[in-house]
Amino acid sequence: MKIRNMKLAFTRSTLFLVFCLMLTACASTGSKTPANQQLQIDKSLPSIVILGRRHIGHNETELDYVSCIEEELGLRFRSLNIIPEQQFLDSMYPYFEKSTAPLTIHNLSQIMQKPVVTKKLEELNMSHLIWIAGNTRRTGVSGSISCATTGCLGYATWSDAADYEAHIWDIEKLSESDSIETNREGTSHLPAIVVPIPILARVQTGACREMAEDITRSLRG
C-alpha cells in the first residue's frame, strides 16, 4: 500500500513538473540581455575581438565556435583583453552588423574615417580584429537504431567536416597581418546493445583548438 502511494505521489509530481515546463514554454519573455550594457576592460592592456562572418546567409559561422576560440585564447593570453563578440557588436553598433560590417581592410579604413568609430576603438584599446569564416557541416549519416521498452539495438554512424579560416586585421597598421585555415573531418559512432553508447568525433572542438593555437602563434609573432 505504501509503495502504491509512493508511486502515485511520484506520478503526480512528475505530471505537475511536465505541466509546469509546458506552461513555461508558452510564457512570453523578451530579450534577456540588455544591449546597452557598459563594457568593462582593463585599459592598460591591448584588446582583441573574435568576430564570426555572418553575411553569407545559411553558412554563418556558429556562435559557439567563436566563443570556443575566445575561451581558448583566454587560456593562452593573460596580457590581452578578449572582448566578447556580442559586447563588441553592441559597443560598435551599427558598424559591425551583418549588413554593415567591413568585408575588406579598405572597408574598415572607410569606416574608421568616422571620428566616433575611431574614438570608440581607441576607448576599447583595440589592437586586432579576428574574423572567422566557415562552419561545421554533416557530410554523411548511415545505420539505424530501434528502441523498445526492453532497450535499444542497432548501429548508427555520421561524419562531420569543419572548414574554417581566420583573417587577422591589425587595427593600427590597417592591414591583414595573417590568415589561417583549419580543416578537420571525423566520424562518430553510436552502437546500441540495450543502451546506446556514443563514441563522438569532436570535430568542431578539435578545429577550434587547432585554430586557437595557430592564432596564438601568429599574435605572438
Binding site: 530579450s31 540588455p34 544591449a35 546597452n36 560598435m92 553598433y93 566616433v116
Partner: peptide
C-alpha cells in the same frame, strides 16, 4: 498574440 519589444544598443553616430 504578441507585442514585439526593442532591445537595440545605443547608436554610434555623428
Amino acid at each position: 498574440v504578441v507585442e514585439t519589444t526593442v532591445n537595440v544598443p545605443k547608436t554610434l553616430a555623428e
